[in-house]
Design a protein around this nucleic acid. Structure first.
Lengths: 210, 210, 210, 210
DNA sequence: TATGAATGAGGGTTCATTCAT
DNA sequence: AATGAATGAACCCTCATTCAT
């Protein structure tokens, strides 16, 4: 495989370029409202070219979501691998990393699209929940359980607590994506994150031994 | 006004019937994907009838969102009026009432639609944020500030804390609306709510006086 | 028949009122573009009422054209009856009367509508040509023939000359109805009429005897 | 531009083909009554194809009228250029050329449509009056003024006389287009033209010098 | 007689998809 | 592989007509 030939390199890069263009367009206008021509124009190709790589608009969307999990998983693994210190510290690290990711509009676009289109793409929703959401939740739950075992945290339902831990971060991202264009004074996301960690860690902290 | 005339009585009831049908259809399929005929069929009328009451599909959507705020505000006021006891108790009451409302798919459909369609209806998003979201947040923030004044709670940024308080409730509702059809074992919402209150109130509780 | 009862008088007057409203609306917007509701509104009745008197929109249009010939014929007869003097004088009288009629937008609207809609209402066009246009032309032709017999005019084809005589008057009316709203300086119709009579009567005058 | 590529050659020819089809259809049925599908069918394409070249039905109509002025102006200029001899001779030439043009249903269709649709397309009417009608009238008026200067014609208002000169020709064309399908014996247009010239030129001729 | 709410066929327009080049 | 002209199904909206009151 001659990957140095620029022609061939282009051909191999096409699908990714198309999905990048699709991501930006779907993000701006939603699935139903974006036209194949919009995607093509953003990718700098003609309408017909998309069909050389994907058989339909739905297929583009599904590929977009499916492809997006690879870097997400890599990100999660990287966090996990780098983690050290107390469970509280590792939760801090995790939530900061999650906040950073969701602050990037091109990253957050995918879960937002899944949210939006779940009704029209149930199979895709199922896939995303299992491959991405469930793993992320499991990782937080694992951290919480480890903290409980170590005596850092009180005994609570780790699965529920993981959701409670992640909830405000996701809602803040949704808030931004919904009202961001409207909002005159953006949320101070750093302060909010600090407060969230403060409240949550106090809330879950093991009782001080008398 | 002759309200005994069945013709006239029907005419008065039509807008509400149409909006109810529109709500169900938009909720199932989103704005772009629902056809006027879908709404009409669900309302038991013909396509043209909708246009006797609303000049366009967009107008139906906007009316739907705008009409929905009245009962929402009434709900909030009712909670506030009924509230008594400690601020913690009143937060408990509030969050249970909010959870109950968001558990009703026909009620939660509106904020979900605003979230989904904000990009295409910025004016409507602005309206909803100011008339509903801002009021709800202000109410929670008010409670938190009262609690701080009374010494029940620590001194924190009330606006941020209000968002953190509401975040998990909203995310649970989004979870249900997104993955509800998929989920085999639904979230135990009561337990989750209890845990959320437990964690949050511990987190924000004033330090025990030494 | 009690025609003094105002209720009954109203009922008898309805068709004429409806046609008057139809005339104004068709004139402003053309047949295809006017809606039954426009006519009804202008007549001060509801949409359904028109159907009590006319079975369809086409029927309204046809009745309008057919009814319009009665006053036109009366007008022609009145001119003919009042006529006296030389044929040239009677032509002068005729053309002035015709110019006056075509200057009235509500009168000229009918031939203009026939012109416009002839393709879609061929039967009506035929009717109008025979009942109105042919009679008017015959009258002018008759005058011209009499003038030839009397030695006032040269021998020419009276049918063709009648058309040539009427042509500029009709075109001026069409000009007004087409460009009237646009025109900054309206045509001086009196001067144009004088010039037309001057040119035409000189053109057709018998040669001066040497 | 690769004009050998048949695809591309077709693309260049399409607008003219579409306008030709539109002309025939509008002429037969008027603007409001013709459906885009009618035009498409007559042009041998599908409905959607029209929208590749014109953004709306109205745009097709406007393009049709605007495109038509170029050949019309060319025609007028050709007449003027070829003209020689007395002013009377040149008027004869002009009117014959005009009669010939208006006798062609596909040429006369444009002014007829402007006449018919002026109320709904005022901007287009203004354009047509200025670009075509005004020029044609100015040309005739210029000829008449030259004739007056030369002593061929009496002193009259040239603008009015130009309208009187053209009136019968246009009315004859309207007659044909309105009643042509009905008429059993068509007007002898040659004889009518001869008579018109005869009458008009006598009418405007300078008095014989005593 | 009169109303006006309701209907539903029809037409303008869009856009995913195809396919000849 | 890439293009982009062409297609035609689909959908929003209009309005002539009907009919229960």
């Amino acid at each position: 495989m001659d990957t140095t030939n620029p022609r061939r390199r282009r051909k191999q890069a096409r699908p990714a370029e198309l999905l990048a263009a699709a991501l930006d367009t779907f993000r701006d206008k939603g699935f139903a409202t974006t036209r194949m021509e919009d995607i093509a124009a953003r990718a700098g190709v003609s309408k017909g070219t998309i069909y050389l790589y994907y058989p339909s608009k739905q297929a583009v969307f599904e590929a977009l979501v499916r492809e997006s999990i690879l870097p997400n998983l890599a990100r999660l693994e990287a966090i996990q691998a780098a983690a050290s210190g107390s469970c509280a510290d590792r939760l801090r690290l995790f939530v900061r990393s999650l906040a950073e990711a969701t602050a990037d509009a091109r990253i957050f676009a995918i879960p937002k699209l899944v949210l939006t289109e779940a009704g029209n793409f149930p199979e895709l929703a199922r896939f995303y929940r299992q491959e991405v959401v469930a793993r992320g939740l499991a990782m937080v739950a694992g951290l919480l359980e480890e903290g409980m075992r170590r005596g850092e945290f009180r005994q609570v339902d780790a699965g529920l607590a993981a959701r409670l831990f992640i909830g405000p971060v996701m809602l803040a991202a949704l808030w931004r994506s919904t009202f961001g264009a409207i909002e005159e004074t953006p949320l101070p996301s750093g302060a909010m994150l600090d407060l969230h960690l403060d409240l949550f860690l106090r809330g879950i902290a093991a009782e001080a031994q008398p």
